[in-house]
Amino acid sequence: MTKAAEVFAELEPGPIPPQRRKPKQPAPLIYQPPPPTRIRDITELLMSELTPVQYVIPGWLPEGLTMLVASPKIGKSTLMLQIEVALATGGTFWGEDVPAGRVLMIDLETNERRLRRKLVEAGIVDLPEGMLRYATDWPKGLLGVEQIAQCLEEDPSIRLVVIDTLQRFRDSGTGKQNAYAADYEALAPLQQLCRDTPGLAIVCVHHKRKAASDDPIDSINGSAAIAGAADGIWIMSRKGSEYTLHIQARDWEKDEDEFSIVREAGKWQLVDGPRFTENEREVLGYLDVAGGMTGPQLGEALKVSRQAALSRLNRMRDRGAVVFREGSWHVA
């Protein structure tokens, strides 16, 4: 190549670079006004018929979010298992007949071996299939709430969800929030889920703080948001050999709010509480007057089916209230 050719080669243009596309401009934001706030006259509320509170455990546990708070190893899981079984079997709880309902138990502080042992210690060897379901592993935080919501959508007959414990269920957080905001955000989605699902109760098991307090609410481990976000609070306490249960709730209808309880045969019972439910007292009345009755005779007197009468009698026999001898049922 001559000198001149080399010079002309250097002057030849290279490949033309592709043209760069101009960045796409974002669409202009259009202001969307918030929906108008509905303001009503208070007389409408006074004249309206309100839906009564639905109870999952009649007289004790209403719909909504409830916190069960106690020190470690005091027996709060035993109390919850007692409630779960009463609901799953349609049994009784502290003097009240419980309509049967499905239960979802999320026990994050145990394993299957310990859970089986709890059931055996409480004398539970057989349950209706599908009425009490459990999990020992569950997503945390909002993912966990969404998983519960999915279960409720797949099975609307679930009446009770138990989370044991709140600390293992909630997100660990980033540490940038203050304690009040973090506690409220942990519970608010669960409370909202209860509002969106009438008749549903969610119980979160939680621990007490170590420092003693005269006010039971102040004994809750965490900020005041825990009591503020919940619809109800159950607090188990122990002084020496005596145990008490303190209850505060938005829909609490009993005059008392503190109850003495005692642990007997793997179950918590009310001290000086009612021994028999209203239905059981009715059964005892018929048996006492008649001097003994067969299952069909009792069913006819109670105006229930033979199967329902026998089921009631068998539960009462297990509690030592009635006996079966010489072909008929009698008061024990």
Rank of each mutant, 00 (worst) to 15 (best):
T2I: 06
A5G: 09
V7N: 07
A9R: 09
P15E: 09
I16M: 10
I16L: 14
I16R: 13
P18Y: 01
R20I: 07
A27Y: 12
A27C: 11
P28H: 12
L29Q: 13
I30N: 13
L46D: 13
E49D: 14
V53N: 06
I57F: 06
W60E: 00
M67P: 02
S71Q: 15
P72Y: 04
T78E: 11
G91K: 08
G95D: 01
G101Y: 04
E109F: 02
N111L: 07
L115C: 07
L115Q: 12
L119I: 03
V120S: 11
G123D: 04
I124N: 01
E129C: 07
G130D: 13
L132P: 00
L132N: 00
A135F: 07
L142N: 12
L143K: 15
R159C: 02
L160R: 00
D164V: 08
T174E: 13
T174C: 05
N178E: 08
Y184L: 11
E185K: 08
P189M: 03
L193W: 05
P198E: 01
A201M: 06
I202D: 00
V205Y: 07
A211L: 10
P216Q: 07
I217D: 10
S223T: 13
A225T: 07
M236E: 06
R238D: 10
G240N: 10
S241W: 11
Y243D: 08
R250D: 01
E253S: 13
E258K: 15
K267R: 15
W268N: 00
L270G: 05
D272P: 08
F276Y: 15
F276H: 15
E280M: 01
Y286D: 10
D288A: 13
A290H: 06
L298G: 04
G299S: 08
K303C: 09
V304I: 10
R306I: 08
A308N: 14
R312P: 01
L313M: 04
R315E: 04
G320D: 03
R325A: 14
H330A: 06
